[in-house]
């Protein structure tokens, strides 16, 4: 039992639990969506005084900020108590594709090249992470949601806009994977 808990969990367990959390939030009278928290943070920092988009009752979204704080704690708990520390097992084909981009085979959860402590002193890498963050923050608000709001909540409600957004996620994701990353990482 303990071993199964410490090893990576299979996709069907994870998928079922994500659906469970989405449904739980519906019964709490809320809807599952992570990216709107960035708008709440902007508003809480006073952006509403200058930009109309952030002039709303951000305190009504406190529940989502609490959920967000929970996710940070969840990551921390897993790191402390629920992992065997073994590298992520990914497909051999992915390992060789990534090697061609200068990213070594996994030694843990994330590539050290991008997220290790040493990468924090590399200006190019910091710029890369910052650029990625900008795209995510801008794109999710423009599209009105991210993976949780559109791909999970939206598709569960059979909403056409969410399907269009998910198609967009993949147009962007495939473009970055096959055109952007080879240019950026080489």
């Amino acid at each position: 039992m303990k071993e199964a808990l410490l090893a990576p969990w299979p996709w069907y367990i994870s998928g079922a639990m994500i659906a469970g959390i989405m449904v739980l939030l519906l019964f709490f009278g809320k809807s599952f969506g992570m990216s709107s928290n960035f708008r709440t943070i902007c508003s809480a920092c006073g952006a509403g005084k200058k930009v109309k988009f952030f002039d709303f009752d951000w305190k009504s979204q406190m529940w989502n900020i609490l959920f967000l704080i929970g996710t940070v704690i969840g990551g921390f708990i897993t790191h402390l108590f629920l992992t065997n520390g073994e590298p992520v097992v990914i497909a051999e084909s992915t390992i060789s594709d990534l090697a061609a981009l200068g990213i070594a085979a996994p030694t843990g959860m994330q590539p050290e090249e991008l997220f290790g402590m040493a990468s924090l002193t590399d200006p190019f890498n910091i710029a890369l992470l910052a650029f990625g963050g900008l795209l995510i923050g801008f794109g999710t608000r423009y599209a009105g949601g991210c993976t949780s709001g559109h791909a999970i909540s939206g598709l569960s409600n059979l909403q056409l806009p969410s399907l269009i957004a998910v198609i967009g996620f993949f147009i962007g994701g495939l473009t970055m994977t096959f055109i952007g990353l080879p240019l950026i990482l080489k």
Partner: peptide
């Protein structure tokens, strides 16, 4: 908005490997 915004997000998702959650 869904197609363009989604594409911009997708670019960032594949670059950083992380969505907002």
């Amino acid at each position: 908005r869904y197609l363009i915004g989604g594409t911009i997000f997708g670019l960032g998702w594949a670059l950083t490997g992380a969505c907002p959650g």
